[in-house]
Design a binder for these strands. Sequence first.
DNA 1: TAGGCCATGTAACCGGTTACATGATTAG
DNA 2: CTAATCATGTAACCGGTTACATGGCCTA
Lengths: 183, 183
Amino acid sequence: MLNIRSLCLAILYFGDATGYEIKKQSTEGDFSHFVVASFGSIYPALARLEADGMVTVREETHPGKPARKVYSITPAGREEFLSALAEPQAPDLFRSEFLLIAVCAQLVTPERMRAAIDLHAAQIREELAHLDAIASHCGDDATRWAVNYGLHCKSQKLAYLEENRDALEAISARAARSREAAE
Amino acid sequence: MLNIRSLCLAILYFGDATGYEIKKQSTEGDFSHFVVASFGSIYPALARLEADGMVTVREETHPGKPARKVYSITPAGREEFLSALAEPQAPDLFRSEFLLIAVCAQLVTPERMRAAIDLHAAQIREELAHLDAIASHCGDDATRWAVNYGLHCKSQKLAYLEENRDALEAISARAARSREAAE
DNA sequence: TAGGCCATGTAACCGGTTACATGATTAG
DNA sequence: CTAATCATGTAACCGGTTACATGGCCTA
């Protein structure tokens, strides 16, 4: 259900858009914290949706600007999306390279561990700043709810990391010391 | 870096294992909350790793039991994994069908919204129980750190959901009422 | 004038999933 | 007797990424 096709329908449900705008919306806009999409998947999906009668296109040519294809959702498209929303949702998907490194704290040098934590913290702060930006100019209640959810989770994540990073670094340092001792 | 190949090396770094055990480890065991892997990806990855000299195999045949191929990591394998760990990690990946539904709270019925929240809460509770199970019989400090990190993030997530679910349901209910009024 | 933004699309590739095929043992 | 667990592997498929191809406008 959370595929590019449904994502396009979701965005078009709230208003007409071009492929370029859909990409922007899903990598920088209101949907960006829980989906991903690239041009290589959006354009084919849009073409497919049109062939299936789920969307219509009109080509706009503003002189001196690249031609743009503006897509509109059709009643059939709305129906398809609504029935996609009606299916029981799959659990959230989470994948973390940082946690793989963390689990391997004994294998990496304390410096590497520290760098990984620093980078991880910086990544979370960036996501937080990004969510703040969305929150600051968003007129939709539901979107704001979702953003606040993300904000809460991520700030908690960062708080835990900052409070417990020493413990993780200590694990790494201890292992490094016993490796030295073994030599 | 967070691909099946590295995952296999990571698990084998901590001890010999069969493909079956690697799968178990990554869907039920210590790695299960931040990676995914299926048989269809593990077995080919292991074959590839052997061809590349990163692991060795020995076939064990216990009478009355299926033959098992036990893999061991080689020094070259350790080296490859360590250099994979040394690369700067990609940010955590998060994808949520629930949040797509949440953002569309105005489009779905209040009942559907409630069901989605209930299911989401149940999914988080399940993940929490799963992490608790790992925590309770895990002898490794780093693994415990990672599990506690997950435990903290997920319990916070659940807390936010429980405190704010009414607001989300209200958005859905309000939209439903105005749809009715429009008729 | 270099780089970024707008704007569309294709093609090769790849990593992974799903389903299938097989089969013995053990616990309920 | 049935279901689960152990155990390995393949093949078809698919969804998506990456890189490529193109090109004009605007800003620093």
